[in-house]
Amino acid sequence: MLKPHRQKPRRTVGDWILLIAVVLVAALIAVPFLIILVNSFKSPTDYANGGPLSLPSSIYTDGIANFWQRVNFPEKLWNSFFISGTVAVFAVIVSVFNAYAIGIGRVKGRVWVLVLFMIANTLPQEAMLYPLYFMFKQVGLYDNVWSVIIIFTVVQSAFGTYLLSAVFGTFPKEIIEAASLDGASRWQILRRVVVPISRPTLSVLLIFFFIWTWNEFLIPLTFLVSNANQTVPVAITALQGDRLMDVTTTSASALLGLIPTLIFFLIFQRTLTRGITAGSTK
């Protein structure tokens, strides 16, 4: 069973049974996606007549169109995109600065700073929620996307600092020494040497921060109360159970919620699987 190179694998009956089992599990996981996909293109009458498992008798896009207009979906997409993109860029910059001081500068007290950031990664957001709500109200940023951007820049960079400090700690010493002997300043070394060389890691971080921020719920829900500021997950959740939403429009709402992340997944699949597994052995 474990000699793939020496002989052609022999597939026993047991192998086929186990294969069917793992494929069945995969089907079970995929079925909800397919059900949502099929039913988003049905009219409510079509749904009532044919049930949830039949294919649509004709392609009906009113449900999707209705929901699209109802929530002003392009606006929500832009909010999510703007928040997640800005957070990703800012959080990577903050992480790089922190990690430069910790991993390469080896400043005093770095262990404590790292422990602090590590603990912050495990804290529930509820433990900061009300004071943050109060603070942002005071400074007039409540119900403003920048409140969410600032909070997640800090939250994501806590993780980024932790990961990048380890990466920078193993940075080839000779390269930095050479640059330093050439008279490069600290800033120049960071800009011209450290950042270019660690670009692959930074882009993985950028993608992760983007998707994590996109998927956040509690803080956007609390801080972005007016319709025009909401993110995709919050706007869609807010309309669940609404009386004006018929059964297939609700299905369409779920479809619109999952499409953006599915697209990210398809684009970044390789980076993501590499990143997840890299993160697991941290």
Binding site: V94, S95, F97, N98, Y100, A101, I102, I104, G105, R106, V107, K108, V113, L116, F117, A120, L123, A127, M128, L129, Y130, P131, L132, M135, I150, I151, T153, V154, V155, S157, A158, T161, F171, K173, I176, E177, S180, R186, I189, L190
Partner: peptide, 29 residues
């Protein structure tokens, strides 16, 4: 530090924005 001849203390500058933000957004709340 990994840099010979460069004072370590200067690196603290890079930690300041991160720590200030962290204090305001995480520690104080």
């Amino acid at each position: 530090s990994l840099l010979p001849g460069v004072r370590k203390r200067g690196f603290w500058l890079y930690l300041i924005p991160g720590l200030v933000l962290f204090t305001i957004i995480i520690l104080v709340p």
